[in-house]
């Protein structure tokens, strides 16, 4: 159970806020930090708000990094946060390929 009234203090800018964390969608550390202060307390909410981890690499590169930024702001260890949901397809795949199913031969 998490009471979201839990106050994490005022957002204060940091010197590395411009650091890009999600390369595909070009989301910075500062944007992620601000989302946490706006009440996004887990990977899923931050992703839905900012799109970090939703690009072509599907979060394989930044998943851990986003997690550690969020965890850092709310004072948890990164392992305490649930990973982003794993979703098919594991590799980006063209629509025309999906459209052509081979069931057996």
């Amino acid at each position: 159970m998490t009471d979201r009234q839990y106050i994490i203090g005022e957002f204060s800018p940091a010197s590395d806020d411009d650091l890009i964390i999600c390369r595909c969608e070009e989301i910075t550390k500062g944007e992620i930090r601000r989302a946490v202060f706006d009440g996004m307390f887990n990977i899923c909410e931050v992703r839905r708000l900012l799109r970090c981890g939703m690009g072509l690499c599907q979060g394989l590169t930044c998943g851990r990094l986003v997690k550690s930024v969020i965890a850092g702001e709310i004072g948890l260890s990164a392992t305490a946060l649930e990973d982003a949901t794993a979703r098919a397809p594991m590799r980006p795949t063209e629509m025309f390929i999906f459209a052509k199913e081979v069931t057996d031969e």
């Binding site: 397809p89 594991m90 795949t93 390929i97 199913e101």
Partner: peptide
């Protein structure tokens, strides 16, 4: 042959050439 998904009933969907196979 990247496996794009692992589904119920131990079914996988695999991308092969320009198709997906179950």
């Amino acid at each position: 042959s990247p496996v794009v998904g692992l589904y119920k009933n131990r079914e996988i969907v695999v991308r092969q050439k320009e198709t997906v196979r179950h």
